[in-house]
Design a protein around this nucleic acid. Structure first.
Lengths: 131, 131
DNA sequence: ATTTTTGCAAAAGGTTTGCATTGAC
DNA sequence: GTCAATGCAAACCTTTTGCAAAAAT
């Protein structure tokens, strides 16, 4: 995973493996604190960056401007509550059907209002320059 | 539009009406400078906030963390170049088909790699409290 | 012993806030 | 004249960077 195995890096990874929703750096730090592993935010940002470079985790940006991270293998689309900002992971295949009311695996409902789809890739100009 | 009609606010709106892609606050300021209307960023943020409250414009967040704004009436999904960060507006209906290569209205191509779909709304707990 | 990982402080970048001034009506 | 809009400086928040100290191998 990492060049060297440390308490912090291994726990960050297992926290991400064991959660059922994307976590922000702040939330990761809180999770670490709960198991008595204090960590500096700089350290977490650096661990996150390595995991992203290895494509082990993916970055999610929501309208609050805060970034969240989840295992790439668990990558989902997301329902985001405008009120409490909770993030629920879903599979787009379960959404397309008509109703604006989505039933979550937990049995709870979610009223969909707006969406944002961003598709990332490479435009023709950048493809040409091969940068 | 606004409680009072000013040079800055009316021009911000017309810039957003005349562009074919979402603009950041920085880009809006640059657009204003080009027509010799210097404006403070605070002012632009406040104008943007009013337009969002009135739902005249919508906010788009991309992985760079920067927010972009576009007329709600022109709301699209977006292709975002990972290299140059250009944003191309598209209609999701034109995407779903098989190929990873999307042809833009301009005739140029875009190679799609990853996507992020965020659906905003209200979760059951917040719906209950009616907040 | 070497090299990576970590912590701290400071900086960076986008966004927001407080307050006094300017400008629209 | 009144109240909204603006500008400026400072604050805020998340994220990044530089450098020295600590830990892993």
């Amino acid at each position: 995973m990492f060049d060297r195995n440390t308490v912090i890096s291994s726990n960050v990874l297992s926290i991400l493996q064991n959660t059922n929703q994307p976590l922000s750096v702040k939330q990761i730090i809180e999770n670490l604190q709960e198991i008595s592993i204090p960590a500096n935010k700089t350290t977490i940002y650096r661990i996150i960056k390595k995991l992203i470079d290895k494509k082990q985790i993916s970055e999610i940006v929501i309208n609050s401007g805060i970034k969240y991270y989840e295992l790439t293998s668990k990558k989902h689309d997301h329902l985001i509550c405008n009120e409490c900002h909770a993030i629920f992971c879903i599979d787009v295949k379960n959404i397309l059907p008509a109703s604006k009311i989505k039933r979550l695996p937990s049995g709870k409902t979610f009223k969909m209002k707006t969406h944002q789809l961003n598709i990332y890739g490479v435009c023709e100009s950048c493809e040409d320059t091969g940068s």
